[in-house]
Design a protein around this nucleic acid. Structure first.
Length: 814
DNA sequence: TTTTACTTCGTTTTT
DNA sequence: CGAAGTAAAA
């Protein structure tokens, strides 16, 4: 059987064990996707399983896409019938069909974090809770984790009995959920939870899916939460052909409800389960792998495994410490450029990984200055940008009209002179009659005290009604164009664009492109379908390996990827591991950070560089943090300290005796004693200067910071409460970068955003007569060339002078 | 109703 | 340091 010939023994076993539950512990780079795809192929080609009886679940669309592609290549016929999708899109597809059985409309909308926040704010107002005392963020967290654990409102209320705080949360939970229901909306958690609810309430629906999905595979299983586990368990219950693949050492989504017990206890839930370990790594060199192993070894309660590689040679892990984060960024940018220019590396083979998104800014600035092409992954999701969300809110309103959050968002955007007073009256009316906000607005003339606002409201409701017309069905791009056009959205944005520098118009333009792309790729394009697709994409999904750029992203985003050259930036205690984890009294928080470090290290194929800075601005204050404890967990013989030439030239390099002076954490941090051995190798304490100060520098009085001498290493279990917010701030001495660069785009010229496209050609010039759909004929007065578009000034015969963007205006020469 | 100036507060991490 | 929210003014 040739199909599995290219696999090693364990992989082959995993791919061919198809009956019954199977747990595959797949170490980093051990070829798990290979196993999964071959397993699917094996099921179809060797076992005669029908492709549509196979379900493969991933976490990101990107992973799903890649898997689909690889299955396509592997399987001769029918690969397209295999259901490969993310948890969320799988559930949405099911719910679109059956959610009416549990009391929602099938054209429900999906709320993102931003919408959730809006709802939560409204809930706080409604329940008359002091927003100072009850942070919506915290409450959202409480609600979300309840859902992750499949705890219903009723259950939550029962559990809360007697606990004041909990019962407040229970009230909030109930109100929040009611609001969502009223808006016919689901949040991300609901998508899973409601599917489970559906299956529980409608056995016949569950049964039909059990029949459909006779062979189930779950990727990244270590990141599943309780709700997702339950979902999978129910689906697999009948045939029990469930294969889960994951790596407990790469479980990094606890904050999102991931339950590491799902993978650690899999054999408890499925006693008859077979279990296979994949330990051969095909990705990294020895030193990198050894470093990864050395770090992760310090975690407790993991499934013991040791990665090994057949690869020969390899260079040590590089470690560079800098005085400031600016120098760190400079080094990184120069280092990469040098690699490309002198060593023939490719930008696309390099990635800079960091703990927090905030770190991206500095790196980005430097990349621009050094002319290194890059892409930042993550941060604010494209679809979360204001202008994009505005347009989407219009689309949502056109699509369903039951989503009050969307209506509220756009009712006065662009400005229509409809303010709070008007809105409140309309809302009261809506509540009184039990109708949606939009319907209330349509009946504005019935609302007492609104007569004056009616003429302002009318154009809005008319517009929506018109765009709901049959002729726009499925024409998403046209709809967007119409919305932009008829609301004067481009002019509205134009005002912002003048000073801001953020290319908002460009973003709207890009949304238009995405809509057009959707219409093309979808079999039966619909507005609902587009909104759904858009709601469920992550930033990482759009990463395109084809463009030759350095990738900047968080460690979380990097999971599942690999690069020849990896730089882990900001290896500092307090940053990575983050201060939350450092100060937590729950060891598992620190262990999660360590897993993150493990993920980061194992992304590297050939070269790994760790960098850190002694001084760094965080939230407007300068912090002096020691080198990350994870660095100290890497044996010395695997590390090379290195300084780039730029460093030397600028006098930025650090003299040997102040270099990487570690404090003796080992002893003072409970539960972390294993780290100690190697930490001591870094030499004892006693250095001078800020670099050796533990934690944050505190200006002024040294009450808690008085522990400065820190690592005396004596047996005292005095863990300094150091890494907490200092009150006073030490100003950084002059930043490297003149603050004069008004926007990154300006500097970028070419390198911002993936899709830099030249503006489409226009066939008219200054002085020409042109025709516009809405304004009629006019004369072109002026044309400004902008990076993404032409800005055209037209003197219309009837409508007067207008400034518009060529791509939207669709002017025709007459 | 809209704009502006001032205060407060925070970030891990994201489907 | 910024974003975001609030109070006050226009």
């Amino acid at each position: 059987m040739g199909l599995l010939d290219t696999l090693n023994k364990e992989q082959r076993q995993a791919a061919s064990t198809v009956e019954g539950p199977l747990l595959v512990i797949a170490g980093a780079g051990s070829g798990k996707t290979r196993v999964l795809t071959h397993r699917i192929a094996y099921l179809i080609e060797e076992m005669g399983v029908m492709p549509w009886n196979i379900l493969a679940i991933t976490f990101t669309n990107k992973a799903a896409g890649e898997m689909r592609e690889r299955v396509d290549k592997l399987v001769e016929f029918g690969a397209g019938q295999v259901w490969v999708a993310t948890f969320h899109s799988t559930c949405v597809r099911i719910l679109r069909r059956y959610i009416d059985k549990i009391g929602y409309d099938n054209n429900f909308t999906i709320y993102d974090t931003d919408d959730q926040k809006t709802v939560m704010k409204a809930v706080l107002g409604y329940l008359d809770l002091d927003p100072k005392k009850y942070k919506e963020r915290a409450l959202m967290g409480a609600v979300s984790s309840a859902k992750d654990e499949l705890i219903t409102v009723e259950q939550f209320e029962r559990d809360a009995a007697g606990d004041y705080n909990k019962s407040i949360q229970a009230k909030v939970y109930r109100e929040y959920q009611d609001t969502l229901k009223k808006n016919n909306a689901l949040d991300f958690d609901d998508i899973i939870v409601k599917t489970v609810e559906l299956f529980r309430k409608c056995p016949e629906v569950l049964d039909s899916y059990q029949e459909r999905f006779q062979y189930i595979m779950v990727d990244e299983y270590q990141d599943t939460n309780t709700a997702q586990f339950e979902l999978v368990r129910m689906l697999a219950q009948k045939y029990r052909n469930l294969c889960v693949v994951g790596d407990d050492d790469q479980s990094i989504y606890k904050f999102r409800g991931a339950n590491i017990r799902n993978i650690l206890d899999f054999e408890k839930y499925f006693p008859e389960a077979a279990s296979i370990k994949l330990e051969q790594n095909y990705r990294s060199t020895r030193p990198i792998l050894d470093a990864a192993n050395a770090v992760i070894r310090n975690n407790t309660g993991r499934k013991e495994k040791a990665l090994w590689t057949g690869r020969k040679g390899g260079v040590n892990v590089r470690l560079c410490q800098f005085d400031s984060a600016y120098e760190e960024a400079e080094y990184i940018a120069c280092n990469i450029r040098q690699k490309v220019e002198k060593e023939g590396a490719e930008y696309r083979e390099c990635a800079v990984l960091y703990r927090t998104n905030a770190q991206a800014r500095l790196l980005e600035e430097r990349m621009l200055m050094e002319g290194v092409p890059y892409n930042v992954v993550g941060g604010t999701n494209f679809y979360a940008r204001k202008e994009v969300k505005d347009i989407l809110a219009y689309l949502k309103t056109i699509d369903s009209g039951r989503d009050d959050v969307a209506v509220k968002r756009i009712i006065n955007v662009p400005k229509r002179g409809i303010g709070n007073a008007t809105l409140e009256k309309a809302e009261d009316f809506a509540q009184l009659y039990g109708i949606g906000l939009f319907e209330a607005l349509e009946r504005a003339d019935e609302i007492t005290g609104l007569s004056r606002a009616v003429p302002k409201i009318r154009p809005f409701t008319e517009l929506i009604r018109k765009l709901r017309g049959e002729e726009y069905r499925g024409k998403v791009a046209d709809l967007i164009r119409e919305v932009v056009e008829r609301t004067g959205y481009e002019e509205y944005l134009g005002d912002f664009d003048e000073e801001g520098g953020e290319d908002r118009i460009g973003n709207v333009d890009e949304l238009l492109t995405k809509a057009a792309g959707y219409e093309e790729s979808s079999e039966e394009p619909s507005l609902t379908g587009f909104l759904e697709e858009v709601a469920l994409v992550a930033d990482i999904d759009n990463v395109d390996g084809d463009d030759n750029r350095v990738l900047l992203m968080t460690l979380h985003s990097a999971k599942g990827l690999e690069f020849s050259n990896v730089i882990l930036a900001g290896m500092e205690d307090g940053l990575f591991p983050g201060y939350m984890a450092v100060n937590s009294d729950d060891i598992s928080d620190l262990e999660e950070e360590r897993r993150l470090a493990y993920v980061g290290i194992t992304r590297a194929k050939d070269e790994l560089t760790l960098t850190c800075a002694r001084m760094r601005m965080i939230k407007g204050e300068t912090q002096y943090n020691p080198v990350s404890r994870f660095v100290a967990e890497i044996p010395m013989e695997l590390l090379d300290r290195e300084f780039g030439p730029q460093n030397r030239r600028k006098g930025a390099w650090v003299s040997d005796d102040s270099f990487v002076r570690r404090n003796d954490f080992g002893k003072t941090f409970p539960g972390d004693d294993k780290a100690r051995g190697s930490a001591e190798a870094w030499g004892s304490d006693g250095a001078n200067g800020p670099g050796s100060t533990f934690g944050t520098v505190r200006g002024g009085s040294g009450e808690a910071g008085g522990n400065g001498g820190t690592g005396s290493g004596s047996g005292m279990e005095t863990r300094p409460k150091a890494i907490i917010r200092p009150k006073a701030t030490v100003k950084a001495d002059k930043p490297y970068i003149a603050k004069g660069i008004s926007s990154l785009n300006e500097l970028a010229g070419i390198s911002k955003g993936a899709a830099y496209k030249a503006p489409a050609a226009i066939d008219y010039g200054v002085g020409d007569r042109v025709f516009h759909v809405k304004y009629g004929e006019g004369t072109v007065m002026h044309i400004d060339r902008e990076p993404r578009d032409y800005k055209v000034t037209v003197e219309f015969d009837k409508a007067g002078q207008k400034i518009m963007y060529a791509s939207f205006a669709k002017l025709k020469r007459v």
